[in-house]
Amino acid sequence: MRHRTLWIIVSLAAIVVAGACNSRSDVPPVSIIPEGGGAAANAIGETGTSTVSGSITLQGTPPAAETIRMNSDPVCVKAATNTETEYYVVGDGGGLGNVFVYVKEGLSGSYPASTETVTLDQQGCRYTPHVFGVQVGQTVQITNSDPTLHNIHATPAMNAEFNTGQPIQGMSMERTFDEVEVMVPFKCDVHGWMNAYVGVLSHPYFATTGPDGAFDLSSLPAGNYVVAAWHEMLGEQTQNVTVGDGATAEVSFTFTVG
């Protein structure tokens, strides 16, 4: 009887584990996949002397930034230098920050991953930067500069999900992404207000706007492109742009709120 009971328990546990493993393959469909930008042709992608530049502006009055209550972790209360929500970073003249601008279509060939390491820092119980981009295969170094513990939980649709703890100040880890995906969200489940987004592309033509809303995509080959601008609250806009060899094409996006 004892053995039979034991075997029943072990079998149930095995079934449960198998079920859990199977559920991992049930990946939801990707939200946005850049078509041209995600092409993985064998030829090396061209670079050039053309530039697409412009600005992102916000029309209307955004909701006022809210003060984040960090009382659940006294260390955060002490360490925080910024306790305002970052949904709308608006500069003078209506420039909109934290917008991820990238070439969505029009590029061909493959671009080697940049060897430059991008750092995502957890400081003052916030992620810095809040929005950024990397290439497929490019290293992201995730660092905990806080004297408290964080977990780094990436919730991609196409790439592998991960959730790793960094309980000690100064801890660091490196991650890369294998698939093109705009955007991969990061969150800290310990501190529910902490979130960040990374755009993963197969090419280096992307930028994140500052409060002035300006962006600059340089070293592009001449051609016709679809340029996209993504904002965490306002979604994505695209525009067609044609840029000649050595020329600069201006393109502006206007997001509306309210």
Partner: peptide, 8 residues
């Protein structure tokens, strides 16, 4: 002392 935020 480290049972903060969601860890609590």
């Amino acid at each position: 002392s480290q049972m903060v935020g969601g860890i609590f």
